[in-house]
């Protein structure tokens, strides 16, 4: 994709939803994948955090020769150091996931970076189609597989949606051998976070269906009526056309056929 674009992918430590174990974050992995597609080997992958974290080897195993680490304590604020880094790196496209899988996972980081760098931000990108003449054509992911096309001027920050191309397999060997460039940066403590109380997620109460019956008879009915369901309707003896009509009515009712 000429001319050469300087792409930076920001990665964080993910969290497996079932085991809670560290992993390559789903969206960040896609950000690296998209970055590799755009700029092949010249992609810069940056992590702000612990350089010893073994999960970084999983990112490196996607075929990165090196990975840049801006060392940070767990309670550090990644924003200022990333702003400094991006300013000095002459990045043109910065890719991240929409939300981190660990920490606050607020999804604010890309917005704050964009604000401080004065760059535009494209949210929930599914694909970057072209980059030419200082602008990129980007496809945004909308719900249910829909897409929107947007043109954005360089440099910009994009958050990568789950609809983007899946991250390639991570290979053990290259990951093990990749070179980690650990930069010397000052870390800034995230003061606000220290005042928070963090606990394991409580299950959210399910919203109950409140019966708004105005009369005694209605309330009686609501209390004694059998729950709907328990085996659907089965059509056996009707004609094929009638059966098809029944199906089609259901499709219309559910608004999947419009």
């Amino acid at each position: 994709m000429p001319p050469k674009v300087n792409v930076v992918s920001l990665v964080s430590i993910g969290r497996h939803p079932q085991s809670g174990r560290s992993r390559r974050a789903e969206q960040d992995g896609r950000a690296v994948e998209l970055g590799l597609k755009l700029s092949k080997k010249s992609l810069t992958v940056v992590h702000a955090g612990d350089a010893q974290e073994p999960v970084l080897r999983q990112y490196a195993g996607m075929g990165l020769d090196s990975l840049t680490v801006l060392p940070q304590p767990a309670d550090g604020d990644a924003l200022p150091i990333l702003v400094d880094f991006l300013k000095s790196s002459k990045a043109q496209v910065v890719l991240t996931g929409v939300r981190a899988e660990s920490g606050e996972s607020s999804g604010m980081l890309p917005y704050l970076l964009a604000e401080q760098l004065g760059w535009p931000l494209v949210p929930r990108v599914a694909e970057i189609l072209t980059i030419k003449q200082g602008a990129a054509e980007v496809l945004l992911a909308l719900p249910r597989g829909q897409r929107r096309s947007v043109i954005v001027s360089l440099p910009f920050i994009a958050t990568v949606d789950n609809a983007a191309a899946e991250a390639r397999q991570t290979a053990f060997g290259p990951g093990l051998r990749a070179d980690f460039k650990v930069l010397d940066v000052n870390s800034v403590k995230d003061e606000a976070m220290a005042t928070w109380q963090i606990s394991a997620a409580k299950p959210r109460p399910k919203r109950l269906k409140v019966v708004k019956a105005k009369t005694a008879a209605d309330r009686m009915k609501a209390a004694t009526a059998k729950p709907v369901g328990g085996g659907g309707k089965v059509m056996k003896n009707e004609t094929a056309a009638e059966k098809a009509q029944a199906i089609f009515d259901l499709l219309l009712e559910e608004k999947v056929v419009r």
């Binding site: 939300r99 996972s105 607020s106 604010m108 606000a192 928070w196 394991a200």
Partner: peptide
């Protein structure tokens, strides 16, 4: 600094989900 994924909010305190929904942050 906003609260994201907030689900229990009063005028003074907010509980929001963090770390991909695995923890509650109250602030």
């Amino acid at each position: 600094r906003p609260a994201t994924q907030a689900w229990q909010v009063t005028a003074t305190s907010t509980v929001s989900r963090g770390a991909s929904g695995s923890c509650d942050i109250s602030r």
